[in-house]
Design a binder for these strands. Structure first.
Lengths: 210, 210
DNA sequence: GCTCATTTTAAACGCTCGTTTTAATTTAAA
DNA sequence: TTTAAATTAAAACGAGCGTTTAAAATGAGC
C-alpha cells in the first residue's frame, strides 16, 4: 500500500526549498502553501506556527546528518594519528547522505544552516546543542587532538570561523559561481565549491597562532 | 559656529546602529525615526527611500575605509616580498580609522557588511565594484603576488571564503563572545576577534590546493 | 515684516504578514 | 450506515510595513 504524500510532507518540501533560496523570514506562509498547493491555514494546523515549521525543516536534516557524522567521527577517533583535514573529511559522507532526504539535500541543508545562523542564531544553537551536543563535543575533542598546540578557546573561535566560511560560501554560492563562470570561463558544480573549501578550512585551523 | 546635528545625520546615526544590530530588513523606519527622534516621513524626504538610506549608511563607511585601504595596499605593493599575512594586515589601520566615523565604527561596519552580503548581495557588490573596483583589483593582485602558485580562480574562491568567515565572525560575534566567556571564563573584546581571525584567514589562503 | 522655499509634522494609504475563526468536508471506527 | 474525530477550506483579524499626501512650522533674503 503506497501512502500518498501527506499535506504535512507537501508543506515541508515546499518550505525547505523556499527557505533555502530566500531565507526564513523572507519566505511567507502564503508562498509556501501556494507552492505546496495546500490551504494557508494548514501550516498552523499541522505545525502550530511558522517557527515550529522552521524547526521541523531543520530537524528532518539534522536527524539524518548527525547520526551519520557521529559514526564517522567515532571511527576516526580510533585512528592513531588525527589530522584536521581528516576531521573535516568526516563531513563528506554524511553530507552526501542528505541526498536521501532530497535530491539537492546537501546544498539545501547548508543554505538552511546559513540562514539559520544569520536569522535565528540563538534558536538553532540551542536546539542543536540539546539534541546533538555530544556529537559537537566529539568534534571539538577530535579537532583538539589534531591540534594540541591550540587552546580550547582558540579552537572554539576557529571552529566558528570555519562555520562562517562554509555557510557564507553556500549562501553566496550561486551568485559567486555565476561570477566565476563569467570572469574565468569556468563553470563549476556546487559540490566542487566544497572541494575548494575544505583545504582552505584545514589550512586556517592548522595555522599558527600569533 | 557649531552647526547643530541635522535631521539627516540623526537618521544616519540611528539607522546604522540598528542596522548593525538587527540587519537591514529587520529594522523598520519607525524604529529608526523613533530612536533618532525625528518624524517618520523625514527618511523619505531626505533619502527618498529605505534602500537609498541603506546605501547612504554603507557609503559613509566605504568612503573612509577604501581610500585608507588603497593607501596601505599601494605602500605594500612596493615591498620586495609580499605575504598573505601582510596583505591582511593592511586592513588593520583603515578599519581602525572607522572610529572617526563612530566610536564603535569598525565593529559596526563589519556587521553592516555582513548583513549587506546576506540580505542584499547583488546591490552591495555592484556599488563597491563601481566605486572602488580598482582597490579590489589591487587587493587581488597583491594576494596573487603573495601566492603565485594559486590560480586566479582559486584565489577568487578563497577570497570569498575569507569574506565569509569575517562577516560571520562579526555577525555571530556578540553571541559567540558570550558563549566563550561562559565556557572558558575568558572575556575578549570585539577587536580581539579580529586578532584571532587574521591568522586563520592567512593560513586558509596559504593552504596547499589538493 | 513679508515672502517664498525648505523642512517638519500628523495622518492616512495600500499592502503583506502570521494567525485565528468558523464552517465544510473527508476519514475511519462502531 | 451512523457517528465522531481529523482534516481541509474560505474568510477575516489585527498588526506592522514603506510610502505618500497635504497642511503646518521654520528660516533666510529682501
Amino acid at each position: 500500500m503506497v501512502k500518498r504524500v501527506t499535506t504535512k510532507d507537501k508543506i515541508l518540501n515546499a518550505a525547505e526549498t523556499l527557505f533555502a533560496e530566500h531565507g526564513f523570514e523572507q519566505t511567507s506562509l502564503r508562498q509556501i502553501t501556494a507552492d505546496a498547493q495546500v490551504n494557508l491555514a494548514s501550516v498552523n494546523y499541522h505545525f502550530g506556527s511558522k517557527k515550529a515549521l522552521i524547526q521541523a525543516v531543520m530537524a528532518r536534516y539534522l536527524e539524518v546528518l548527525m547520526p551519520a557524522l557521529e559514526r564517522e567521527l567515532r571511527q576516526l577517533s580510533q585512528q592513531p594519528q588525527i589530522t584536521t583535514r581528516a576531521v573535516f573529511d568526516c563531513f563528506r559522507g554524511p553530507l552526501q547522505e542528505l541526498t536521501h532526504v532530497r535530491r539537492q539535500g546537501p546544498t539545501i541543508f547548508l543554505s538552511l544552516l546559513g540562514f539559520a545562523y544569520t536569522e535565528i542564531q540563538g534558536h538553532l544553537r540551542r536546539y542543536t546543542m540539546a539534541h546533538f551536543g555530544d556529537v559537537i563535543q566529539l568534534l571539538l575533542t577530535l579537532l583538539h587532538e589534531a591540534n594540541p598546540q591550540l587552546s580550547p578557546v582558540a579552537m572554539f573561535w576557529r571552529l566558528h570561523f570555519v562555520l562562517g566560511a562554509t555557510v557564507f560560501a553556500q549562501l553566496s554560492g550561486p551568485a559567486l559561481r555565476e561570477i566565476a563562470a563569467a570572469d574565468f570561463g569556468e563553470t563549476i558544480a556546487p559540490d566542487e565549491v566544497l572541494e575548494r573549501l575544505i583545504p582552505f578550512l584545514a589550512g586556517g585551523v592548522d595555522a599558527p597562532t600569533c
